[in-house]
């Protein structure tokens, strides 16, 4: 093996390199295997070492290494070039119209009313309220009498009732759940009861079935001031920090003192507009301190315990939040409505 062999091998490599497609890592790699692989031409030179004398070996070894380094350097450059070329090709091929629709299932939707219901449940649950769903069909006792609404009392006019049997009805409010809950549990009590309620009524703002959330707190030293505080917090949670609340005296047979709760109009922030009939306020629900009679009806001593209860219509809240003009849309099951949420 003399210097000429080395030169020839190098020129062979250079020739083959120039014939190689240096835009392909596969081609460059094949060249690498041919010269530097286990059975490669340059690698083969090292094997000839054994035939040399001890004096010749260091110089020969050095020469082979020089050749190997030279080849390696060229290959490395080539492979880098190939990688870049391939990357270039990857980046420039297969243009995609990203404006085309995604395939697979069209997206479904969650009902706006149930969204609100969930938010409200979570708000109160986070404060330690138990969640009761109650039942849609109630007896007169739970829906009216235990709630201090005797038969033939004008306060029954406030709620027109669907009957399924004598003294058995579709509940007109979720308040009956208060009674069930107080019968089964002892104070301190914290409960909310979301659910469907029914009234013989049907127009743009009244549906024969709608949703309410009832709330009840019974403990020692619970006052009307606590009712105001908690519901104010709730209103802020649902309608934002800037919302204001107003409590007006009202009447419910099962609370005393009773109140209607208004929030500042969500459309005009209380300035007065068509939606709030220029009052700046919107009615959001009824509430009050639990009437002592109701506590007595479930064997809780009203001298020791006091409490408050509240009830809100979810349909109205959903309509306010999503600017839904007609209550009937909520139960229309029309996909043109549903898919907006």
């Amino acid at each position: 093996m003399n210097e000429q062999n080395f030169t020839e091998l190098l020129s062979q490599f250079n020739t083959e390199l120039s014939d190689t497609d240096v835009s392909s890592t596969v081609a460059v790699d094949a060249l690498r295997v041919k010269f530097l692989g286990r059975k490669g031409l340059v690698t083969g030179l090292m094997r000839n070492m054994g035939a040399l004398s001890a004096e010749e070996r260091p110089a020969y070894g050095k020469r082979v290494n020089e050749l190997k380094q030279e080849v390696e350097a060229s290959l490395e450059a080539a492979i880098e070039q190939a990688r870049l070329a391939e990357l270039e090709r990857k980046l420039n091929s297969g243009w995609t119209d990203i404006s085309l629709p995604g395939n697979g299932l069209g997206s479904g939707s969650l009902h706006p009313l149930y969204e609100i219901r969930e938010e409200i449940i979570d708000f109160f649950m986070n404060m330690g309220f138990h969640v009761e769903t109650g039942r849609d069909i109630e007896t007169d006792w739970y829906n009216f009498e235990a709630l201090n609404t005797p038969p033939d009392h004008p306060s029954r006019d406030m709620q027109d009732t669907f009957y399924v049997a004598d003294k058995v009805m579709l509940r007109t409010h979720t308040s009956g759940t208060q009674i069930h809950y107080m019968e089964d549990n002892k104070p301190p009590l914290r409960m909310i009861a979301p659910g469907h309620v029914y009234r013989v009524d049907s127009d743009a703002t009244h549906a024969p079935m709608f949703q309410q959330v009832e709330g009840l707190v019974v403990d020692k030293d619970i006052s009307f001031a606590h009712l105001k505080g908690l519901l104010f917090l709730w209103a802020q949670h649902l309608f934002g920090d800037k919302v204001k609340t107003r409590f007006r005296p009202s009447f419910f047979p099962f609370t005393e003192p009773s109140a209607e709760m208004d929030i500042s109009c969500v459309f005009c922030q209380g300035k007065g507009c068509r939606r709030c009939k220029n009052t700046g306020w919107m009615e959001i629900g009824g509430c009050g301190s639990v009437d002592p009679i109701v506590l007595k009806n479930v064997n809780i001593d009203p001298e020791v315990y006091t409490g408050f209860a509240f009830g809100f219509g979810l349909d109205r809240i959903a309509m306010l939040r999503y600017a839904i003009p007609e209550i009937g849309l909520l139960t229309s099951n029309d996909q043109r409505f549903l898919r907006q949420f």
Binding site: L105, G106, S107, G108, S109, L110, H111, L113, Y114, D136, L170, H196, Y198, A207, P208, M209, L330, T331, N333, Q335, L338, R339
Partner: peptide, 16 residues
């Protein structure tokens, strides 16, 4: 509700 709506179904609320 989460599962079925993610599969492309729309949640209904029917009058009882």
């Amino acid at each position: 509700r989460y599962a079925l709506s993610a599969m492309g179904l729309h949640e209904c609320l029917s009058l009882r």
